[in-house]
Every structure is written in C-alpha cells, then in structure tokens.
Design a protein around this nucleic acid. Sequence first.
DNA 1: GTCTATACCTTGATAGAC
DNA 2: GTCTATCAAGGTATAGAC
Lengths: 189, 189
Amino acid sequence: MGQKGEAKRVQIVKAANDLFYKQGFGATSFADIAKASGLPKGNFYFYFPSKDSLLNAVLDDRVQSLQSKLQSFEHNYATPRERLLRLAEMPIKDFENITRYGCPMGSLSSELGKCCEELETRTIEMFDVLKNWIAGQLTEMGQSPAASQATARHILTTMQGAALMAYTYGDPVWIEDTVAHMKATIAAL
Amino acid sequence: MGQKGEAKRVQIVKAANDLFYKQGFGATSFADIAKASGLPKGNFYFYFPSKDSLLNAVLDDRVQSLQSKLQSFEHNYATPRERLLRLAEMPIKDFENITRYGCPMGSLSSELGKCCEELETRTIEMFDVLKNWIAGQLTEMGQSPAASQATARHILTTMQGAALMAYTYGDPVWIEDTVAHMKATIAAL
DNA sequence: GTCTATACCTTGATAGAC
DNA sequence: GTCTATCAAGGTATAGAC
C-alpha cells in the first residue's frame, strides 16, 4: 500500500473514530463516514474488509492515544500521586464532550456488549491499559499489587459512573463532584 | 379495549421489556418480540403506534416496578439507614444479570442518549425516582437537602460505574468491591 | 488503486382481508 | 379486533468499470 493509500486509511479511521464516539458504532453508517471524510463509500472496503474491521482500527488508534497520554503523564510529572491527580481531573477538561457524548471507552463498551462479544473484548484491552497503569502508580506509592488493583478498580468504577450519569442528565455536576471526591481520595493515599 | 386485549398488551410489554434489556432497544426488532411473545408482528401496531411508543410503555412498567420496590423497602425496614443498606446490596443479588446485560437503567440510558433525545428524558425520570428516594432517606437521617442530593448522586454514580465495569469485564468482582465500599460508607453516615 | 452501481437483506410501518 | 402480506427505506457488502 502506497503513501497516498496510507493517508487515506488514516483519514477514514479519523472520521470513523469521531462518528463512532458521537453517534455510536451501530448508528454510524458508511454513508455517514463517506460524508464526513469526503470519500466515496464504496472505497472503504478496499482498506477494511468489514465494518468490524474498521472499528478494530479505530480501537487500535484509541489505545495508542491513551498509551501516549499516559506516557506524557509519566514524563511531565515526577510523583505517581501527581500523575494520578492529573488523570483524575482529565474529565473536567473534557466535560463538554463527556456530557454530550459520554466516555469514549464506556459508551462504546456498553454498546458492543449487547451485540458483538468479539469486539467487546477489544474494549477490555483499552480499560486494562488504564487500569494497569493506575495500579502501577499505586504500587510505586507503596501499595501491594492486590491493593493497587482494587484501588485502580475503584477509581475506574467511579469515573465511569460519573461519565455515564453526566451523560444521562446532560449535566457536568456529576463529573465535578466525583472528580473532587476522587482527588481528595488520591491526595489522602 | 377488552379484557383479552389488555392481557395481550401486557404480554407484549413483558416480552419487549426483557428483550430491550438483554439485547438493547435498537438491536431488538419486532420480529424478535413476535418470536418471544408468540404473537404475530403485524399485531403490535394495533396496541402501539410505533416502536418508540412500545418503549415508553416498557419504561412506564419499569418505573412502576422501581417505585413499588422502594415502597417495599419503606414498609419492611424501620430506619432509613437500613433501607439504604438493603438498596446498596441489591446488585449483589442480581449480579448475574448485571454482569451479563448491565444495569437496566444505565445501559438503556447509554443507548438512547446516542439516538433519540426524547426517549432519553424518560430514562432521567427513572433515575430521578431513585435519586430522590435516596435523598429522602438521607434527609430523614439528618442531612440537609443539598447534602442529601450530593450524597444521593455519589451513591448512584458509584453503583452505575460498578454495573458498567462488571458488564464490560463480565466479572462480578467490580460489583462486590463497590457494594462493600458503599455499605461501609452508608453505615458510617 | 479508485470509484460507481447495485445486489441483497432486515427494518419499521402500512393496507386490507377476515 | 386479529392477522397476513407487503411496502419503502436504509443498511452492509460485492461486482466490476476505469
């Protein structure tokens, strides 16, 4: 596949990523992606054998974004506590999107679980990246591996709940309260 | 509408309720409901003018179930703390369904938010019933109205997060840990 | 490699017989 | 009131021209 082909592939994934987030995977048709990307819809099947395959590419992209984000935390902040605090307040910065479209990981996971189990396992991958990174920070802070996992689960659970409720009510107050609570918890660890 | 007609209506709502929970609203077709209820699909439009209308009937049913459940808590347990503890441990009893299909309220809310805003407001109704009941118990325990609302939001947020994560991972540990944590919080109030 | 045209299926909804 | 047959629309996916 040539240079131009790769660029087009990226273009498709980019448009699909956005639409899968804002409309959901099932509600997004190839016609939608064609309109958003400016590419004719028959072309997609040259790059992706199926819609599921396209979603897989989108998930690859999201995992990579998440990993580089976490890496930037490690680079920019010296202590694990500081890193976790920055992570916890991320939903504040993104509250508009979360309130309107939900958490990119949580809402997709919720949707895929109902229809396609194979794809659901891919979303677990994404959550695992985040969970294990959080647990790693906690271990670095002196928690045992088991305790780190439990605390990481607690943090993920709370943030996902906040995103879902803020999305349901269309009100960021659910995020604000939860983030404040979470930051206090982390600071006290 | 006669007696038999009403019975059939209930039968349709019952089958739809189950399928909307286990497969999702969008993924459930009239053909599915026909197969599950044993009724021919062309018949549905005599009872419901549209699929949305059927969902509304399902939501009415769920709200009523929820309200009678909460009423039974009031009847069976003397103190608000006891009632909240019983509510908090409900997901434990239902962990198998939640792990497989998610929370009936949360997963539906997540799905509807992406497609139909009018129906999304109906799910808020359901959450409000629960939220305001929890807040009422907390007020009875001496919390101020504002604090009661904030605590009720916190409880709802946490339980929804636990349901979503248990569903995503297909693992009830997310529920067990969260319920234990929640019960400790309530007991300490 | 790129794009058009279209096949084929499933969906929600309707028309009309009984 | 109840049910069968069918419609129009929109979906994914494919065939094949260029």
